[in-house]
Amino acid sequence: MIRPGRMIKQVLQSLFKKPATSLYPFVKTAMPDKFRGRLKYYPERCIGCMLCMKDCPSDAIVIKKIGDKKYQAEINLARCIYCAQCVDSCPKDALEATKEFELAKFSRENLKVVCNEETCRSSETKT
C-alpha cells in the first residue's frame, strides 16, 4: 500500500533497541584476523634481500645493514599505506602485519620507527 510514513513501524521499534553505534574510544572492537596494521619486524630472520624496499609503493621501509648479518628496519608509519605487500614479498617472514591501528602521534618524527635487535625487543616488552 502506498502511503506516507511507511517506515513508522521499524522507526518505533528502534526506540526499544540498543543503538547500532559502537562508542569507539570507550568500547574497542576486535580487528579481523587478516587486518593489515602496523608492521612488525623480526631482525633475526631478516637476510637483507631488500625485496620489501623494492616493492613498497610508498618508500616507507628502509632496511640497513648494521653489522655482520645484522639488519635494522626504519619504518615510516606516516608514509606506510598498510598494504602489507612487504609481508607478502618477504621470503623469510621477517615482517608481519599486526592488528595495531591506533598509531596517531603528536609529531611526524615520532612516526618514524627504527627496528633492530635491541629496539624491537624493548618495544615488545613495552606493549
Binding site: M7, M31, K34, R36, Y82
Partner: peptide
C-alpha cells in the same frame, strides 16, 4: 532515517569484507 538504517545494515557486509580481506576499504 533511510541513510542511518541502510548504512547500519551496510556494516554487515563491511564486516564480511573485513573478515575476508583484512580491511573495510582498499581490500588489496
Amino acid at each position: 532515517t533511510l541513510l542511518m538504517y541502510s548504512w547500519r545494515d551496510r556494516e554487515v557486509v563491511m564486516d564480511i569484507l573485513a573478515m575476508l580481506t583484512g580491511n573495510r576499504v582498499n581490500y588489496s
